[in-house]
Design a protein around this nucleic acid. Structure first.
Length: 120
DNA sequence: TGGGTGACCATAG
DNA sequence: ACTATGGCCACCC
């Protein structure tokens, strides 16, 4: 279970970029940890993106972490939200249906930052 | 210092 | 199709 979750200065830069991308995710769309990692040039270190989400709750700016799922559209991070229902509900509000902890019509809702987001 | 863990992903058998 | 394994790299004990 997560406990202290402190951020080293070195990673702060990476986390910041992750948050930036996540904040750009349009409503009603979702993306995956790996997609973000690739977009940031982090290669296969998609776990770090997950870790970034883990610490995102302590950021001042609201991070729509509920729009980030794993590569098959599974809500793997739901257990890390305040309540296990928060993620699913937030997505539901945005018009994304969840069935058995999975995003319905994931392929259509998927938003690839490296393809649709241009670097500022 | 070193081993285990993790909101993951890709590849191999 | 499914399981196993390696890679990734920061964090914790």
């Amino acid at each position: 279970m997560a406990k202290s979750l402190k951020i080293s200065e070195k990673n702060a830069d990476f986390f910041e970029k992750v948050f930036m991308v996540v904040k750009q995710i349009p409503e009603g769309r979702v993306t995956s940890y790996g997609a973000i990692a690739r977009y940031l040039g982090a290669g296969r270190s998609s776990r770090m993106v997950g870790w970034a989400m883990n610490v995102s709750h302590k950021q001042k700016a609201a991070i729509p972490a509920h729009r980030v799922v794993n590569r098959v559209g599974l809500l793997t991070g739901k257990n890390h939200f305040p309540t296990p229902f928060a993620m699913e509900e937030a997505l539901n509000i945005e018009g994304i249906e969840i069935e058995d902890d999975q995003v319905v019509d994931f392929d259509n809702k998927f938003w690839d930052p490296s393809r649709e987001l241009k670097i500022d």
